[in-house]
Design a protein around this nucleic acid. Sequence first.
DNA 1: TCTGGGGTCCTAGGACCC
DNA 2: TCTGGGGTCCTAGGACCC
Length: 440
Amino acid sequence: MIGLIDCNNFYVSCERVFQPRLEGLPVGVLSNNDGCVIARSNELKSLGVEMGTPAFELKGLLRQGRIRLLSSNYELYGDMSARVQAVLEEFSAGMEPYSIDEMFVRFDGFEHKQLLTHCRELHHKVRRFTGIPVSVGVAPTRTLAKLANRAAKKVPGYRGVCVLSAGGAETAGLLQRTELGDVWGVGRRLVERLALMDIRTAWDLAQADPKAIRRRFSVTLERTALELRGVPCTEMNDADEPRQRIMTSRSFGRLTDNRDEIHEALRQFGQRGAEKLRAQDSLARAVYVFLKTNRHRQDLPQYSPGAVVELARPTDDSREILHAVGQAFAAIYRPHYRFMKAGVMLIDLIDANRQQMSLLESPQSAAERERSEKLMATLDALNQRMGRGTVKLGMPSPSAAWHLRCANRSPRWTTRWRELPTITAPREARSVKGHPRPCD
DNA sequence: TCTGGGGTCCTAGGACCC
DNA sequence: TCTGGGGTCCTAGGACCC
């Protein structure tokens, strides 16, 4: 059986662990640059605030003091996620993180009742040990586990834990009540196309002929249909596979047409990408750079180019990657356009330990390679110990447009000594304080 | 004024080969 | 007049996910 553990309103829950006064209030967490809402407490959802709502549309509510909006604090969320995972590992033989707030786990050799008890305990302990509330869905396939998880969250009777068996009456009832769009892997487009075939619920899709689904749609949807019947079609990935692409991009704090400023932002993205590349022990064979103007500003000319530059050899050396970034940028930059976003994608990745030199690649001496490795390792070690961006290649640029806005970020309580909470306990009340620092 | 930042997988179609 | 067919590799783009 496969379990899906989903942290409820994860970012908001992380904030509430350290700021209990947010409990019971409508709270939202904003994307980078305080752009739009990416996490909502139940109270905020009840006010009708949708996922992705731009922050400026909520100014009224904010001014009236009816809602709270926080900047995102990814360092905190990442650390809390690791804590949740650590607890899960004690309850399962195999755990696979699916996203920052969802983890698949494997449960083998349980009977139904036993499994329910086991999951209730897990549900309780995660909350107890980390402060994060979770929902637990268990079923024979991942797609059904997703469905079970949704039920665990929405149907009060389940009290956060739902264990489904394939072919049971409970499963059938749930499938019949589930709209297609709520099935994992079925998006808006597919809902439209399936409606033409009179397939409207999860049950309808499960009953459809898988071969016909494959013919008219794709093998992906066929697998989804089979999984809804309880036939597993996706494997658990225990070994965490390295990423096949590494993307680093950001919206700027304001529109800019300044060539140097944009170039510097891209250099920073390139360096960050190279760090991620080295962390997963891969080499890149090419670099893709893109720019975007603001498509919401129809009054301004639009231009959103991108370019790929191949590297002379597969590499994880920031300097070579930045050189390619510079070339790509020079090829696509045009003055008089005001750009809103830019990014660097490292593509065509290979395993650093299984590098095969092609005849077309320019050779690198052993000494050169060793120097490069040492330099990069030192760079990474310093940045890890002293905080991201402590050592950078190139010139510092303190006032650039691409510095993030994050007006209201909570302290990184669990990962920075200087931001550790201090607790005072006077007679009348207790309070928790931290020392927020500007974004960096 | 103000609208995120990542990823994955699949398919169709063109280029090229024998 | 009649002008093959099967295979692989690559890329762009679509669709989906959180």
